[in-house]
């Protein structure tokens, strides 16, 4: 489904701030995989998503999505196949536009000159009611008035309203309070399941890294240092992950937002 081969990205090359954020990363993702990614600050997790999503071009290496070489495809064209959520709930929505206008743009139905129909609105209302946040009655409200959790749930819905081939979740619940984070995570789980999405999720929560999905990657210094799935992964505990990190990197895993239990 997704294949990365020897992908390299160096920021600020040739300066004192030179930093190799992706160091010859190769990765193969199967269709329907739900992969959690953990690692310390600056390990290259977000850079990996940036490379796949097209925020920048990589220095070398090949990225193939569903048989198509997307290495040099611009970001706005990749977003047809790749949905993306960030930690900041404000990034995915236009605050001064209404919920239905945001959804209309994300759905992208019809030509350039098509307008919202009653059918579209009914469809949005039905989809929103599944979130259980009361957004279905607020189609005409500006998105800027929503809470962080509501905005993130809406962004998730926008990213998946046309099921993408790949969903990239970059700590998308980290800025939410624990109860809301749990709820958004639950919506994420059900959305991914229902649509059979292939999904990569960066998380700072060690427990959900092991609980969610079928495979876990650990990154450090621009490399994937540990990759586990199946039975071996089922047996892992959070403490095992921490031990593994210490063993591979030679220091304990520190991440300023790390949640261990």
């Amino acid at each position: 489904m997704l294949k990365l081969k020897n992908v390299v990205k160096t920021f600020n090359p040739g300066t004192v701030n030179e930093r190799t954020a992706l160091d010859n990363v190769s990765l193969e993702v199967k269709k329907g995989d739900f992969i959690s990614i953990i690692g310390a600050n600056g390990a290259g997790k977000s850079t990996l998503f940036g490379a796949i999503g097209g925020s920048f071009f990589t220095d070398s290496g090949v990225i193939v999505l569903d048989g198509e070489d997307i290495t040099l495809r611009p970001e706005h064209l990749r977003s047809r196949d790749i949905g993306r959520l960030f930690q900041d709930p404000r990034l995915g929505t236009a605050p001064n536009m209404t919920i239905e206008e945001n959804l209309a743009l994300a759905a992208g139905r019809g030509g350039w000159f098509s307008t919202l129909s009653k059918r579209d609105r009914d469809f949005f209302r039905e989809k929103l009611s599944v979130l259980g946040m009361g957004l279905e009655d607020r189609l005409q409200h500006p998105v800027g008035l929503l809470s962080g959790g509501q905005r993130q749930a809406l962004t998730l819905m926008m990213a998946t309203i046309n099921p993408p081939k790949l969903l990239l979740l970059d700590e998308h619940t980290a800025a939410l309070d624990p109860a809301t984070a749990e709820k958004v995570l639950e919506i994420t789980r059900s959305t991914v399941e229902e649509n059979g999405l292939t999904c990569l999720m960066i998380t700072h929560n060690m427990l959900s890294a092991l609980e969610l999905g079928n495979r876990t990657l650990m990154m450090s210094a621009g490399k994937i240092i540990f990759d586990t799935e199946g039975e071996a992964r089922d047996k892992l505990e959070v403490s095992d992950l921490l031990d593994l990190f210490r063993e591979k990197v030679g220091r304990s895993l520190d991440n300023d937002r790390m949640i261990l239990n």
């Binding site: 611009p74 706005h76 064209l77 977003s79 929505t93 743009l105 994300a106 992208g108 000159f113 098509s114």
Partner: peptide, 29 residues
């Protein structure tokens, strides 16, 4: 009044509001 409600019009309004969101809607800002 008509144009700003069309998909293109919405995309133009969103460009002033959040260009990243426009890009993730597969439209080039």
């Amino acid at each position: 009044a008509f144009f700003l409600r069309t998909r293109l019009g919405l995309a133009i309004r969103a460009t002033g509001d959040n260009p990243d969101m426009v890009r993730s809607s597969s439209i080039n800002p």
